[in-house]
């Protein structure tokens, strides 16, 4: 039975999220080193973290006529929304807040990233940064609806919006088996709302960093952390939604949750390095012409199964 944990889970959840996100960044660094032909040493693993202390003490960049209030609000929103989204994700049999509308909560927090990234793009009063913010919205219009239908598929299958109920409803068969389209659409959505890999369009190199181009110091650190925190949160949410939650033989529930989350996270880190960046206009077309019809049909499957129950 999945239920809300003690008060300290509110602190343990974000700590766990941060730990897993650090692992993801380290994994990415290892793959970086391997692809570059360097030997994979401890230095290669900690390389991305060497910049953290420097970013913490760096003097912030000042720009003429920047809207500092909105800029800061946007930069802070991205990682904070990622942390808040994990409140409803069960780890084993415990979660920080057992909301009756957990799936909608997760979705609402994810959508906050839209506001956060647009504000982060608007704030500095710089062209490339602004275009980056707009790019994320264009991308959002493409990835959001398939992602929503994927969430609706899982919720329809369990006839509940409570994340714990969805995990429990997969006792017989994991949703990934009979809702593969929803699973793929969900994972694509995870990469998109963490704007990594093929969806790094808002921070593209062709824009000299886009949303990230004018950020420095702690601001840059927060935005970058937000990306990896979102990737980790999305991977963790995939476990109760599609992979049966903490269910599994032999090991305790928390261990299964951890193993499954690490597998999904590892797969995502591997995949985001394999795929080229896709332009938002192309992905919009693919999403609306191919993904959305497929997702609607996918949502119909659990609905029909429910009706025959």
């Amino acid at each position: 039975m999945v239920e809300a944990g003690a008060w300290w889970t509110v602190l343990a959840g974000p700590a766990l999220l941060l730990g897993l996100a650090v692992l993801a960044v380290a994994g990415d660094a290892v793959l970086d080193a391997r692809d570059a032909g360097r030997t994979v040493t401890l230095t290669a693993v900690v390389r991305p973290f060497l910049g953290v202390p420097r970013a913490l003490v760096a003097q912030p960049r000042r720009l003429p006529a920047a809207d500092v209030l909105l800029w800061r609000a946007g930069v802070i929103t991205v990682p904070v929304a990622a942390v808040l989204s994990t409140l409803v994700i069960p780890f084993g049999n415990r979660m920080a807040a057992d909301l009756s509308v957990g799936v909608v909560w997760f979705n609402a927090m994810e959508v906050l990233t839209w506001a956060g990234l647009w504000l982060a793009g608007w704030g500095p009063n710089a062209a490339f940064s602004l275009i980056g913010g707009y790019r994320f919205l264009a991308q959002g219009l493409a990835y959001e609806l398939p992602l929503m239908f994927a969430l609706i598929s899982a919720a329809t299958g369990a006839q509940s919006l409570r994340v714990g109920d969805i995990a429990a409803a997969q006792a017989g068969l994991w949703y990934v088996v009979w809702m593969p389209v929803a699973f793929v659409a969900y994972l694509a959505g995870v990469l998109a709302f963490s704007f990594l890999g093929p969806f790094a369009y808002p921070v593209g190199r062709d824009l000299s960093g886009g949303v990230l181009s004018e950020t420095s110091g702690v601001d840059r650190l927060l935005l970058q952390a937000g990306r990896w925190l979102w990737l980790t949160s999305g991977a963790a949410m995939a476990v109760p939604l599609f992979l049966g939650g903490g269910a599994g033989p032999g090991l305790p529930a928390w261990a299964w949750s951890l193993i499954k989350t690490l597998v999904v996270l590892g797969a995502l880190v591997w995949a985001l390095r394999r795929l080229p960046v896709i332009r938002a206009d192309r992905y919009v077309e693919f999403a609306w012409v191919v993904l959305i019809p497929l997702s609607v049909v996918q949502t119909l499957v659990p609905a029909l199964v429910d009706l025959n129950r």
Binding site: S100, V104, V111, L112, A115, W118
Partner: peptide, 21 residues
């Protein structure tokens, strides 16, 4: 009404960001 409350937040964020544009 938690469902309506969270959905209001979800939809308003999307709507207002697009409206800002």
């Amino acid at each position: 009404l938690p469902y309506l409350g969270v959905v209001i937040v979800l939809m308003m964020v999307m709507e207002m960001v697009i409206m800002a544009v």
